[in-house]
Amino acid sequence: MRQLVDTYRGQVFGLCYRMLRHRQDAEDVTQECFVRALRSLRRWDNRREFQPWLLAIAGNRCRTLLASRMRQPPSSCLVDNLSDNADQIHEARGLAEEIELALSTLRAEYRQAFLLFHQHELSYAEISAALGCPLGTVKTWVHRARRELVARLVKRGVVQEMRDEVRRV
């Protein structure tokens, strides 16, 4: 079990961190995810890929936490606040920071699908099976995520000005 945790802890934490943008929450969800997964191992269908299953648990726990955050009064310590003010663009620390900020504006399911596809390189079929969603839905989420991210980067002036050309999502 220890080896299993060591093998996947980086991936799981990476997903949780990108979903939540909060280190301590990401640590807590990662820990919870592993405990849940390890406890459920005997019921795991070993014909399924382990990594998508594990990442789906992690992503879903993050979505649960994000939903509970939405129900709570806003707190500035939960996530970094975003600014649409062009004067503050220079405060962002380059493209990586801007992408992180843009990711945090996505709907949780879009973010989860996007990260699983583009960062963890799962296939649409794997994501679909792991999340229990139709494949077409997953595709739609990823497409919308990409468009919203690009639109956000354009709006923030990170990529070349093309506001008129980016089609509305």
Partner: peptide, 15 residues
């Protein structure tokens, strides 16, 4: 730019 940027995002390490 977006996808290259995503691929280059630093990988956060847990405790």
């Amino acid at each position: 730019v977006l996808l290259d940027g995503v691929a280059a995002l630093p990988v956060p390490e847990p405790s």
